[in-house]
Design a protein around this nucleic acid. Structure first.
Lengths: 324, 324
DNA sequence: ATTCGGCAGGAAAAGGTTTACACGCCTGCG
DNA sequence: CGCAGGCGTGTAAACCTTTTCCTGCCGAAT
């Protein structure tokens, strides 16, 4: 089952077998046919480990994400792995369950294997991130920036997104808004916070309630959020917002009549909730495509900014007087 | 950055370095410290390709799924990769976009790399599946059975699930049910069909409407489904059912007052739709755990059956007279 | 005192592939 | 007719690690 077996069977050298199958220098048709026949007969396929060892490239990229169950990351993974597969690359994946420490270890571990590493929304500290950058041949970040000469990134402009959402709500008369915060270490949460500070400067009241990034987090945070008597809720992302809608329905709070709800990201299901979710729409397809481009050997180590757009659906409406 | 550099720096042989770092035969403390210091100084980490070549094992499993964006597969991937990571294994992933041909090629490709291959709901033909089984060191299937002496599988009892759903609907007086079919090649769809045949034998009328496995498929299939004037709809899975609910809402069809809706799988969001989705609940955590167990070298090549349970939520109610 | 056993560490092979270099033959040109 | 060059093929090195086998040394036992 090795190249030697094929060579012996075809009565040629291993070099010739390699040339026929991997296409190097020209080989006479007669010999090539014999080799191909022999290879087919024993069902020969080259050993990838040996190829990797020699070439120094595994034709593989690594993807690390905080939560593979989150549709946002699942979509990104789907996109990037499709792009990779189209060019004959493989995708090695690791979930970290939002644990910065596991994330760090997983990244270092994968770095040795892969040609390039994609870190989705990394939570680890800056110094550790630089360590990972040094350990990996190519590092690309999604939704995190890092001042480093060899690291590419593609980030969504959440600052802009939050401002759009707040302006939209402002136009509808909302002055008291609760923001259900994402994971504390998340860079993308900090970007949203910047947007909220701008909204505060513009006269809106923003109350921050700790929450998280999962559906269940949103569901659980609603009760506390309502104690602040907001006229509108903005969730860290759409996944959270779905949980929020669900809990509000349970409590008999009407959306958007009693309270408006908005999310961020435009998850696939967001158009299908009841009511449809107003959100800041980001194309995960585009995100995956841009991230993939950063892996090209010639790609410059720059940060690409990706703007989304406001999608208004039925979950936001005119502000009514504060409840209770 | 190779073991030779460390050996030279510590003034020992490469064999000793390997013994210190990978723990083989005993090494004197004095030498061991010198090696560890040298390794730390140059930040040495063994080359995984070389280790793989030598050991014949990559400490990696491969996962192939029809659609990584489908929460069902995303959850399974999350579970299996977590299990794998806990034992120091990596996860290589490939999406196939429901294309049996790409699935076949991806499986063969991955088979050379990995210690074990997990095929989620494979759509490829039986003969091809056997080919993949022969090419891989260990093959485990999810939601597909194959008569083969070395292939393990874990399958959900969809036949049972559909019968439970139909009985539940029967109790509520439903006699005219539309089933929104899954992908034609899917084994798990055929299992559901068996369940429906049992329901037909019990006197219910089942009309089959081609649909698919994605949210959008459900949304698109509703209009045709309604032409059959059913009192209840059963979707291939919950993902599809969410699309169904959305389209019904758009059409002003009330659930469950005008028509009942049920899904299969109990996706994370199913408890949070409006109305909550009646479904046949399957634990993806359990599914992942069982699949992982099959990768143990001592695991027998058997098919494990996993039963779910009926979860009744608000989307199913008493049958009313047929609309229109 | 000599031999044997045990222990620490070194040399070298094996794992499978690709590719630079070398070699031989044939052809074409001087 | 002789030499050079090109084409097709073989040989062997390189990629990096682990592990087997072996060597040399020291202490203990006969």
């Amino acid at each position: 089952m090795t190249i030697h077996d094929v060579a012996r069977l075809a009565e040629v050298s291993t070099a010739t077998v390699s040339r026929v199958l991997s296409g190097g220098k020209p080989v006479s048709d007669q010999v090539a046919d014999r080799v191909r026949a022999a290879a087919a007969e024993v069902g020969y396929r080259p050993n990838p480990a040996a190829q990797t060892l020699l070439r120094g490239s595994s034709q593989t990229i690594g993807v690390v994400a905080p939560d593979l169950g989150n549709p946002y990351f699942a979509e990104i993974l789907k996109g990037i792995s499709a792009e990779a597969a189209a060019e004959g690359n493989h995708t090695l994946v690791a979930g970290t369950d939002e644990d910065p420490d596991r994330e760090y270890r997983a990244a270092l571990e994968l770095a040795r294997w892969v040609d390039g590493l994609l870190l989705c929304a990394p939570r680890m500290s800056g110094p550790r991130l630089k360590e990972v950058a040094a350990a990996s041949r190519k590092l690309v970040l999604i939704n995190r920036v890092l001042r480093h000469p060899s690291v590419g990134a593609v980030v969504v402009d959440y600052h802009h997104g939050v401002r759009l959402l707040c302006e939209h709500l402002g136009t509808l008369g909302h002055k008291h808004i609760v923001y259900l915060e994402g994971p504390p270490k998340a860079w993308s949460d900090q970007q949203r916070q910047r947007g909220f500070r701008a909204a505060e400067a513009a006269g809106q009241t923003i109350v921050r309630v700790p929450c998280g990034s999962a559906l269940r987090d949103g569901y659980d945070a609603v009760d506390e959020a309502l104690t602040h008597r907001p006229t509108a809720l903005i969730a860290f992302n759409d996944h959270v917002a779905v949980g929020v809608l669900s809990r509000l329905r349970e409590l008999g709070v009407s959306v958007p009549d009693d309270v408006s709800v908005a999310g961020v990201d435009d998850a696939p299901m967001s158009a299908h909730t009841d009511p449809g979710l107003t959100t800041y729409a980001v194309s995960t397809v585009e995100l995956g495509r841009l991230a993939w481009q950063h892996f090209s050997p010639t790609a410059p180590a720059i940060t690409t900014h990706l703007a989304g757009e406001l999608v208004v659906r039925a979950s936001t409406g005119r502000a009514t007087r504060r409840r209770r």
